[in-house]
Amino acid sequence: MTTLLYAVLLLAGTGLIAAVVLYAIATKFKVEEDPRIDLVAERLPGANCGACGKAGCRDLAKALVEGGDLVCPVCSNEEWAAVAEMLGLHADTCEIKIPVVRCQGGRLNSIRQTTYEGFESCAYAHSLHAGENGCRYGCLGLGDCTRACSFNCLSMNPETGLPEVNEAVCTACGACAQACPRGIIELRYKHAHEGRIYVGCHTEDKGALAMKHCLSACIGCGKCAKVCPVGAIKVENNLAYIDFTRCTHCRTCVDVCPKHAIVSTRPSDPEPAN
């Protein structure tokens, strides 16, 4: 009985002493930290994707609380407004963006002239050759962009050999656009209700050469620019570019393009409410 008592007392005693020591240390070496950091961090997506330029979500929270002028590209407008409110600020709303792949070459529209067998990396293949179809601007199809995404929302379509974006999951952090050695991926307004209209080609080669590489290459003929009622299309270096801030989704250009290089997406399916 006494053995048991001793054991309990000894344990309790050690616990008490340890508690006192720990308490003393904790008060002496206490780090003053703004409690808002944790609150803000809780509100952020927690993916630590690094798209804001900080090491992770908590790092961004700290920077925000300290008055940094930074934006989380992953947060929706509402979530961002909530963060701003917590800090007593007002957030500007911004249009949600989404990456688009400006190449339709791949396996279906371009002819493979050579075969690449090296390391599976677009950056490496880009340093070696122009591409299996000979186009020095087109997608190499080796998936650097898919590997760069921390949300797993890009995948290579085995049929076309081109990357595809899963709209429901994409947070528009821009990691894929940065990973692509050829700058094929661009972040554009999502326009969930109207769909997106963009030139699905990135070649600056002259028309004849571009056509040799790919069936759906922009040849810079300028027909689209002529018909656009709001003047949103510019042709530079043999390549048309549609300014997404001015496009009104009239879709006139889509049909006049002789090479079917302009991509027009359907309106997105309504986002799942949750």
Binding site: G118, F119, S121, A123, Y124, S127
Partner: peptide
């Protein structure tokens, strides 16, 4: 293994 490929990429 594609050792040289990755080394060249890393070197650049």
């Amino acid at each position: 293994r594609p050792l040289l490929d990755t080394l060249r990429l890393g070197k650049s």
